[in-house]
Amino acid sequence: MLELRLVQGSLLKKVLESIKELVNDANFDCSSTGFSLQAMDSSHVALVALLLRSEGFEHYRCDRNLSMGMNLNNMAKMLKCAGNDDIITIKADDGSDTVTFMFESPTQDKISDFEMKLMDIDSEHLGIPEAEYDAIVRMPSAEFARICKDLSSIGDTVVISVTKEGVKFSTKGDIGAANIVCRQNTTVDKPDDATVIEMKEPVSLQFALRYTNFFTKATPLSSTVTISLSNELPVVVEYKIAEMGYVRFYLAPKIEE
């Protein structure tokens, strides 16, 4: 028996909107730790890891570890039917081939339930090693989204370089080239507007903008984004989910031939 009641249902709606274009089908894993997911995109270039900790739910009952295969597009369709202020409860019985999403309006005058068929998904689980990153950049998530969108109108790939000067996003394409430098800036009115750069070693890595643009679909989840980089390792783009967990996107770099 599984019953997870999330008062801020909009968070789950935003989570689905942030990953449904990158991943088609995925297993949601439910344990005493929380509600989580790990899935790769179909070309195995990027990986998404989601965690919603059990403490973040108003009610969290998970009698035994459960893995539920879902088509994310279908799940997003159902969650779109929940109001932004609705409380969402996820329910499943042991051995059932369906999951139920229950939506309650804040005043309790409208209660809906949507039953979705589960699917068997044979997915590989990858071990993500704990890593010390050479450079960690925290910046406003909207700024990162803007940069990725702007650069993708010029080129297909972005080179992200971190030096003492700041973080530079560069691209080249048929029509020309572009460089955007963001300097560390902590003298802002709101802490979430700051750009903070922690650098141990200078880093320069190249990534496909097609994927970074997928990641920025998570912008509504958090006002800041953290980009962790090490030479010759996948980048981690993390959006924290208020007091509950995170969505982390890992992207393998492109290397020169």
Partner: peptide
């Protein structure tokens, strides 16, 4: 333009 690496080259299957 560079060669796109796969994520599975970095993270072992568990």
């Amino acid at each position: 333009k560079g060669v796109q690496l796969n994520i599975t080259e970095f993270f072992p299957t568990t």
